[in-house]
């Protein structure tokens, strides 16, 4: 099948004007220089219809800039973008009918109008046929439990209610692609779960393609079979969530319970991370030693009662990637 989103060597450079170093006062104001900042620095990927893709990376890595180019809000500096067969920067208005967008921290609803009126206006704006609108609205109102707040002005809604309202609003015109920017930010566990369930169902039942940026890795664990990680404008990972562990998570932890408390165990290939009474945590690198060799070495030095090996949490790996520690080489 032809990809619904394809991006080739996409670049976005911003000219940022900075005060020239060393220059001060009035002279400093005049002595400005422009620096080319590459927010997105040559990325390529494609997304098949019906995929749910997590797009993650530290703040300022280029996530929103990429999404803005996929929606046509921003015009790329160079590279090729096709979304639903259209060039977003040239055919932005046409493209709006194919995409839905939800920003966790903004709303597309009319602040002073009841939710119902906002939905109704969107029907006119997107020229959704009445029949289709009814079906969609009924479905979303039920799935997102919006019935009780339909007549409440948006400004009086709680964050969770508003977010669910925004989700419904972004889908009334049957977009094929849904961009979600931090859709669960600041929401409680129950609402988060509801929204995830809704997105999974939307993807399953309607085949909507979803591109999701989030800081909450559990969003991605529940929803996305594929993750792209962007860092400093480069795509440093594109693959399955579980394969992140293989790529970046080559550090593991051996947790041993000793017969009696002992000083940190000194074995080659491992570092004692933590000691808590008779329990010790030894961090080791897969490339330097095997779990079996390490256990044998430890057993030769102290008397063991129990042991477990901990795989790194994906969240920890991602946090390390975010932290800038080089977790492995980019492709």
């Amino acid at each position: 099948m032809a990809p619904i989103v394809s991006v080739e060597n996409l670049e976005k450079r911003f000219a940022v004007s900075r005060k020239r170093q060393g220059a001060r006062g009035l002279l400093g104001k005049l002595a400005r220089e422009t620096i080319d900042v590459r927010a997105v620095d040559g990325i390529s990927f494609s997304i098949q219809p019906g995929e749910m893709v997590g797009y993650i990376g530290p703040n300022g890595a280029g996530k929103s800039t990429t999404i803005k180019m996929l929606t046509g809000i921003l015009v790329p500096s160079s590279g090729l973008v096709r979304v639903a067969g259209l060039d977003p920067s040239r055919r932005r208005i046409e493209l709006t009918r194919h995409i839905g967008m939800v920003f966790g921290q903004r709303t597309q609803l009319w602040w002073d109008l009841p939710l119902r009126d906002s939905f109704d206006l969107l029907r006119y704006i997107y020229r959704v046929p009445v029949e289709r609108f009814r079906v969609n609205l009924d479905t979303f109102v039920e799935l997102l439990d919006l019935g009780p707040v339909l007549d409440t002005p948006v400004r009086q809604l709680s964050l969770g209610q508003r977010m669910r309202g925004d989700l419904a609003a972004s889908l009334l015109h049957d977009p094929e692609i849904l961009y979600l920017d931090e859709p669960t930010i600041g929401l409680d566990v129950v609402v988060k779960a509801r929204i995830r369930e809704f997105l999974a169902e939307l993807n399953r039942e309607r085949g909507v393609t979803v591109l999701l940026t989030t800081h909450d890795i559990s969003d991605i664990e529940r929803l996305c079979s594929r993750v792209m990680i962007i860092d400093r404008g480069h795509l440093i990972y594109d693959g399955s969530l579980s394969a992140i562990k293989e790529r970046f998570g080559d550090e593991r932890m051996l947790v041993v319970d000793l017969e009696e408390p002992a000083p940190p165990i000194d074995v080659p290939g491992a570092i004692v991370e933590k000691v808590d009474g008779p329990r010790q945590w030894l961090r080791f690198h897969r490339s330097e030693t095997t779990a079996a060799a390490l256990i044998a070495a430890v057993a030769a030095r102290v008397r063991l009662r129990d042991l477990t090996i901990e795989e790194p949490e994906i969240e920890d790996i991602v946090r390390r990637i975010y932290g800038g520690a080089d977790p492995g080489r980019a492709r």
């Binding site: 809000i73 932005r92 967008m101 920003f103 903004r106």
Partner: peptide, 23 residues
């Protein structure tokens, strides 16, 4: 400044029209 102008660019209407009808 708030970035809300982006919302205006993802709807199938002219940006000017949407801004003047915001309130």
């Amino acid at each position: 400044q708030s970035g809300d102008f982006d919302m205006v660019l993802i709807r199938p209407l002219g940006a000017l029209f949407q801004v003047v009808t915001l309130d």
